[in-house]
Amino acid sequence: MKTIYGIQYLRAFAALAVVVFHAAEKTGHHFAIGAAGVDIFFVISGFIMWVISDRRALTPAAFLYERVRRIAPIYWLATTVMVAGGVLGLFPNLMLTTQHIVASLFFIPVRSPSSGEIWPVLVQGWTLNFEMFFYVIFALSLFLERRWRLVAVAAVFTSLVLSGLVMTSQNPIFLTYTRPIMLEFIVGMFIGQAWLKGKVLGPQFGLLLVILAIGGFLALQVFKLPFNEFNCGPLAVALVAGTLSLEAAGRIGQWRVFAFLGDASYSIYIWHTFAISVIAKLGGSIGLHPGITFAAAVVGGAVLGTCAYILLERPLTKLFKSPKPKSWSKPVPAEEI
């Protein structure tokens, strides 16, 4: 199975959008819509997991190990850096407790003692709480026949979201896993099912979806409209579905730089805030123009994340590589995982 370049480019786009969002936030600019990169990531995650489950004969335990080895080591390392920095006083606003650190490392939603928000020590790691929960439910679905898996996962997530609409609780776990944003994983799975069956939209309609999605994101940004999963979610779905339509029609070119950034997207997402914080603070202390500081923060965040991918993520992923399953029906290249 060939690399799906459109998905690679969207991963790069989503990661860089989050970088711009945080760089703008730290330098007094406005690019709140960049946070919608998370919505794109969630739709892509659902798509990729469903496609992988069709190509690999993995047990639930093997699936979970594969996910943990790709997600956890680099996240644990970045969290350790945050904790060390907090202990050394490098992050004056960071309050540390044992409970918060342990919960962060094990992807358990709790409130941060620093802000009261449901955030881990490494703030952007909040999305990984959703990712790991999705992986657990998806792994459990592997016990079922394939024809029931999509229905089962969709039923679980839909039930959780509905319970959040009819029940009230301030429990961080309940508040996290009843958010409608979780449905983005499910829609991504349905898109994956359509992709596997060759039931994709025509390229003209796909291009229209991409244009409408980008236009929608721009409208939310330009007019400073409220944004959440209710509007960003459908736009992310349209962007992914439209891109896959263009991919199926052979309208997506192969650009190595963007494909590489897609591979590095996870490390960029995890590490970029370290560079942004340093550059924003330095720019402010020396009186650098905010626009220049913003641009430098964007570049610095992307560069640090890319270096982390080369120097940390790839070696750690190989170090914890699981043994090759005895029977793989259709191997999937690493770039798609």
Results as ranks from 00 to 15, higher is better:
residue 4 I to F: 08
residue 8 Q to R: 04
residue 9 Y to N: 03
residue 10 L to H: 02
residue 11 R to H: 04
residue 15 A to W: 07
residue 20 V to G: 03
residue 35 A to C: 02
residue 44 I to P: 02
residue 60 P to T: 04
residue 69 R to N: 13
residue 73 P to K: 13
residue 75 Y to K: 13
residue 85 G to L: 13
residue 91 F to C: 01
residue 91 F to D: 05
residue 92 P to V: 06
residue 96 L to M: 11
residue 97 T to M: 00
residue 101 I to R: 04
residue 103 A to L: 05
residue 105 L to H: 10
residue 107 F to Y: 15
residue 110 V to N: 04
residue 114 S to G: 05
residue 126 W to L: 03
residue 126 W to Q: 01
residue 129 N to M: 12
residue 136 V to Q: 00
residue 137 I to W: 05
residue 157 F to P: 01
residue 161 V to Y: 06
residue 162 L to Q: 07
residue 166 V to I: 14
residue 176 T to S: 11
residue 178 T to R: 00
residue 181 I to S: 07
residue 189 M to D: 00
residue 196 L to T: 09
residue 197 K to I: 00
residue 201 L to I: 12
residue 204 Q to T: 14
residue 205 F to Y: 12
residue 208 L to N: 02
residue 212 L to D: 02
residue 214 I to G: 03
residue 219 A to I: 09
residue 220 L to Y: 03
residue 226 P to K: 13
residue 227 F to M: 11
residue 230 F to A: 14
residue 231 N to K: 10
residue 233 G to L: 10
residue 234 P to H: 10
residue 241 A to F: 13
residue 245 S to D: 11
residue 247 E to K: 07
residue 249 A to I: 07
residue 251 R to S: 08
residue 266 Y to K: 04
residue 271 W to M: 13
residue 276 I to K: 00
residue 284 G to Y: 03
residue 285 S to D: 09
residue 287 G to W: 03
residue 289 H to C: 04
residue 298 V to M: 04
residue 299 V to Q: 09
residue 302 A to N: 05
residue 305 G to R: 03
residue 306 T to Q: 00
residue 319 L to F: 15
residue 320 F to R: 00
residue 321 K to C: 01
residue 325 P to R: 08
residue 326 K to E: 15
residue 329 S to A: 13
residue 330 K to C: 09
residue 332 V to N: 03
residue 337 I to A: 03
